[in-house]
Nucleic acid binder design. Structure first.
Length: 784
DNA sequence: GATTATCGGGG
DNA sequence: GTGTACGATAATC
């Protein structure tokens, strides 16, 4: 009776370790297996023997086989009929790869690429992160176990890109309920400081501290903190034996992103979670902190770290600890939801943390197909994948917006439009144009975009969705009952997280059908889903306009509208009353699961083009969609202008003021009043200078830096200013120190106008009009 | 308009 | 590790 926190195959012990909080269970009985499309056991063995002979192997392959037995399964690509095939069980997980490569030549294989531990969780009922009775193999309760959690963050002394070969780790910050400490290799006067004499001691201390905890939160620790720590540790001859059983940390490099896995503990990297669950334009720690807690975190600014360190500035300790503190808080915020995902999908917390929602859906489907005795379709081949990636189809309906500024806007949207469609029409890769329904039956079957769907049995996608929806309904019923009784206890919170995680999973099924890597991929089902979705939203817009709304803009499953009749000016209260009335009417006509609901009221909004708009609500909260171009490579002058223009439009509702912001900035630029620092454009050198085929400003600047005797490395961010002259833009790019002037015209045309021009054009203001302050400017200039 | 290149998070 | 797993947007053709 203990909580299962993590699982891993231990290659020394040759079995799966089930890590509980205080102990380890060794699972020795579960063996790796896959299926062969053949019932002839002898023939399979024969084929392997032939292979051994041909390659002069001494029965090495046959030795890997533990057992071959005939099983009955429903096979997806054989008309979904039950048929017999062979289950080949091998001795060790890495045997699968060897044996399958050989047998691929023999016959079609199935389920040959499911990682061993994940296979274990698909086939067995044990649920990660829940409290489990291993004797009787059942769940004890729903509670979230009392995990010991800590956040972890390192600081590095460096002036450019951190280089683990030379730049030392100088500090490590930790934050947990009862431990808030910054371990440092320099003595600062700060209450949270713990001094160690050098970097080697620091690394030893980090290991010692992390080993106290079950869950370790980082922010981008997969890609930065752990790989960096490991490299530094190696240079001191230290190993990161962070595992529960002193196993080494496993850092896997997968193309761009790495993963840092600690056996027996859970390393939760909050960066990928924030990207998955929040909808922000930027995902720096400070952005996430602000979005979740409405707190503006003071950022150290990595370029200041060496200075502060050298000057023994103790605010460095405070700032550094702040990062750990907020990482911990973000972790506590997201952990329950991740735990619920882990339980519903039935995969480990570590894996869930790094899965996209489509991957979660796939593992849910694998679990269900296993239960249903269905063999999963294979993942696409490289060729098939390329084909899928290239095939596109019509997406959701997006209405061309009524351009300009609008006031008193209500938005309404469909509650899970696509899941409802998939369920009510039984859309699934195996139900589409099924062969099991006879022609007569199919005669009455409705045809959608030239396809018919099975009437006899429910497809795996709608079935999985229905299970989720029913489970969510049950949970929501309990929640309602508890709410009525005022029982907002721990159980209530857990159930609430459960229904939220189910909602996310349900809403991911449509995306899964169109996910090119999906086993149950179906372009046709995805296309039909959006097709039907377009019908519903268009019909609803029609109804809304008949009722008296004017629909300003619509996208896929929702729309923004105002009251149409300008003579009949409604108060906010009246508008919301009308909205309620309309929703009640429309929801009576919609089928089963489908429901249109009120989403929000906005006092003002500006609509530019499809997918590009901004709104402000009653609390002055601004929502911007598709308009933001604020990336780190843009200059400050550009970012600020955009921000000020949006404020003028939304907060003041003044086109004139917005116009003035732009014209003033242009004036300042022409007048040479803009600070050179605000003109810096930042671009990263992503490859070696000699590898660039095209000329780009930052590459040219890098060459100049090199010529002046300084070093430039791949990964460095080059900051430059475009100076005036007649040569090409690239040749005129200079670093701050060498920039004697700047190209006014370049900044107006390429930095000031692009982010705001579409905004202003939607309001009927032309580019020329914005730039035409030139005459006024010269006049002013000379008058002054 | 379609294809290709770049960036993100961390310091 | 029984894993070939990004996705949005700007620049360029």
């Amino acid at each position: 009776m203990e909580s299962l926190i993590d699982l891993d195959y231990n290659s020394d012990d040759l079995c799966i370790y089930l890590y509980l909080i205080n102990s380890i269970i060794k699972e020795k009985d579960f063996k790796p297996y896959f299926y062969v499309n053949s019932t002839d056991k002898e023939q399979i063995l024969e084929f392997l023997k032939d292979y051994e002979k041909k390659h002069k192997l001494d029965s090495e392959i046959s030795k890997m086989i533990e057992n071959i037995e005939t099983v009955k399964k429903i096979v997806f690509d054989e008309n979904y009929q039950e048929k017999e095939l062979s289950k080949v069980t091998v001795k060790y997980p890495n045997n699968v790869k060897t044996v399958r490569e050989i047998l691929m030549e023999f016959e079609r294989l199935y389920e040959y690429d499911i990682p061993f531990v994940r296979r274990y969780l698909i086939d067995n009922s044990v649920i990660p992160t829940s409290t489990w009775d291993f004797e009787n193999n059942k769940k004890i309760d729903n509670k979230i176990p009392d995990f010991k959690t800590v956040s972890f963050d390192i600081e590095v002394y460096c002036n450019k890109e951190p280089n683990p070969k030379k730049d030392p780790i100088i500090m490590a910050s930790f934050s947990s309920k009862d431990f808030n400490t910054v371990v440092s290799t320099k003595k600062f006067d700060h209450e949270k400081l713990e001094y160690v004499k050098d970097e080697k001691e620091l690394i030893k201390r980090i290991i010692e501290i992390l080993k106290e905890y079950d869950i370790i939160y980082t922010y981008n620790g997969d890609n930065f903190d752990f790989p960096y720590l490991k490299k530094r540790a190696e240079s001191f001859g230290l190993e990161l034996k962070l595992g529960k059983n002193d196993e080494k940390i496993k850092i896997t490099k997968g193309g761009m992103n790495s993963k840092s896995y600690i056996p027996g503990r859970v390393h939760i990297d909050l960066y990928p979670i924030a990207r998955r669950l929040l909808n922000l334009t930027k995902y720096r720690l400070e952005n996430v902190t602000e979005a979740l807690f409405d707190v503006k975190k003071v950022d150290v600014g990595h370029e200041n770290i060496p200075k502060m360190w050298d000057n023994l500035d103790e605010t460095l300790v405070e700032y550094s600890h702040q990062d750990a503190y907020y990482t911990q808080r973000i972790g506590e915020q997201f952990l329950p939801l991740e735990i619920m995902f882990s339980r519903v999908v039935n995969q480990s917390l570590y894996d869930i943390n790094r899965m996209s929602s489509s991957q979660m859906v796939e593992y849910l489907l694998l679990k269900n197909s296993y239960k249903m005795g269905v063999i999963a379709p294979n993942r696409p081949s490289g060729k098939e994948y390329q084909k899928r990636i290239r095939s596109s189809y019509e997406g959701g309906y997006v209405k061309e917006p009524l351009k300009g500024i609008h006031e008193d806007i209500v938005s309404m949207d469909f509650l899970s439009l696509y899941p409802s469609i998939i369920m009510s029409h039984n859309l699934s890769p195996e139900t589409i144009d099924c062969t099991c329904c006879s022609d007569e039956e199919n005669g009455e079957n409705e045809e959608i975009l030239g396809h018919k769907f099975c009437k006899k049995s429910i497809g795996i996608i709608p079935k999985t969705l229905m299970d989720l929806i029913n489970r969510r309904k049950k949970v929501k019923k309990v929640l309602r009952e508890k709410a009525e009784k005022g029982e907002f206890d721990e159980e209530y919170q857990i159930l609430d997280y459960e229904q939220r995680s189910i909602k996310v999973l349900a809403n991911s099924h449509y995306g899964y059908l169109a996910f090119p890597m999906a086993r149950w991929y179906s372009r046709d089902c995805a296309e039909i889903t959006t097709h039907l979705g377009r019908q519903y939203i268009q019909k609803t817009i029609e109804e809304a306009e008949n009722f008296g709304f004017k629909v300003i803009y619509a996208d896929t499953d929702g729309f923004y509208s105002k009251w149409a009749d300008d003579k009949e000016k409604l108060s906010k209260y009246e508008l919301l009353e009308k909205t309620r009335e309309f929703l009640k009417n429309i929801n009576n006509t919609l089928p089963g699961e489908m429901e249109l609901e009120f989403e929000g009221y906005f006092k003002r909004g500006i609509f530019v083009t499809k997918k590009k708009y901004a709104l402000i609500d009653e609390n002055e909260k601004i929502t911007v969609k598709g308009l933001e171009v604020v990336r780190r490579d843009w200059s400050n002058v550009s970012k600020n202008t955009q921000k000020n223009v949006l404020n003028a439009l939304l907060k003041e509702g003044s086109v004139e003021n917005a116009k003035k912001v732009i014209q003033d900035t242009i004036k300042e630029l022409k007048d040479g009043k803009v600070n050179n620092e605000d003109l810096l454009i930042h671009t990263q050198l992503t490859k070696r200078i000699e590898d660039y085929k095209t000329t780009a400003p930052h590459v040219e600047v890098a060459k100049k830096i090199l010529k002046s005797g300084n070093r430039v490395n791949t990964g460095d961010v080059i900051s430059y200013i475009i100076t005036s002259g007649n040569k090409s833009i690239s040749e005129r790019a200079e670093i701050l120190e060498n920039a004697k002037n700047y190209d006014t015209n370049y900044y107006i045309e390429n930095q000031i106008l692009p982010p705001v021009i579409r905004l202003m054009e939607a309001l009927g203001i032309t580019k020329d009009e914005l730039k035409d302050s030139k005459k006024q400017y010269t006049l002013h200039h000379f008058l002054k």
